[in-house]
Design a protein around this nucleic acid. Structure first.
Lengths: 140, 140
DNA sequence: TATTGAATGATAACAATTATCGTTTGATAT
DNA sequence: ATATCAAACGATAATTGTTATCATTCAATA
């Protein structure tokens, strides 16, 4: 299990051409174990339990590295800080305009995305990121 | 014209229960005259031409006030700072994943938004904010 | 195993935003 | 019109999130 995970991470790094370090490995595993849209500070707090000496700068640098190399996806905030998307399935977000809570909703559950890949101005579509703004059950 | 604008602003303030000050009036007019997704700093720079002594804090405070009272809409970034939505028509955004340019696209031009108003979990939909992620014509 | 460029940790710097607080102003009652 | 008083303002300190710097350490390869 531990070994398998390590191998997986090594392969992942090889694919993306990034060096394998202890910090990166732990960071990756910790992030895999988180759900929702963790902030760098939240990730830092968790990683610190395993590597107490790790620097916040290292966390930021590697989150960026992971995002740039496509290992994780950065989500389009609404929070006041960078957030990483941990849900790897195609989905969108429901944002409560009152309490600001953000909940995932599956692409099928939403069922609205057009498949057009070319838009006016010659814009080439990669994907749609839909934020549904409204009121969550609690706030209604 | 000037008087009409002033009256409009007075009415707007009355509707939203906010006090009329010279700073707010100028701020509102300046913002009305801007297009796209201006940042607080950009708004500040423009307002300063009319009220050189205005404080950046006042600009921030009133942008928040306008947004909270529904006079203007805050857009869901991708920029690194708060942006205000100046396009009052129903539209969405195309975000270039390469150069980060953000362009408006009319809701009809996109033509994908479902009219469902209730989602799983009892979420009550107010509106959809769609970011189309892809490559602009220049970056392809 | 030695080499060497990349990664790390500590921390300073920075940018955006918010809080504080003394002064000024607009709205209301006189 | 004027006095009153809470609200708004301006100046600026403080805070937050993030990035840059740089000396030290480490991973990849030869």
């Amino acid at each position: 299990m531990q070994v398998a995970a390590a191998n997986t991470f090594r392969e992942l790094c090889a694919e993306h051409g990034i060096a394998v370090t202890h910090q990166r490995q732990v960071l990756y595993e910790v992030m895999q174990g988180m759900s929702g849209h963790p902030s760098p500070e939240e990730v830092y707090a968790r990683v610190k339990k395993k590597i107490p000496a790790i620097s916040l700068a290292t966390v930021y640098k590697n989150i960026h590295l992971f995002v740039e190399s496509g290992v994780f996806r950065k989500m389009s905030m609404h929070h006041g800080s960078v957030r990483v998307e941990m849900n790897s399935e195609a989905h969108h977000h429901m944002v409560c305009s009152n309490c600001k809570a953000i909940t995932d909703i599956g692409e099928q559950e939403l069922g609205l995305v057009s498949k057009r890949t070319r838009l006016p101005g010659g814009f080439l579509v990669e994907r749609y990121a839909v934020d549904v703004i409204g009121l969550c059950a609690k706030c209604q």
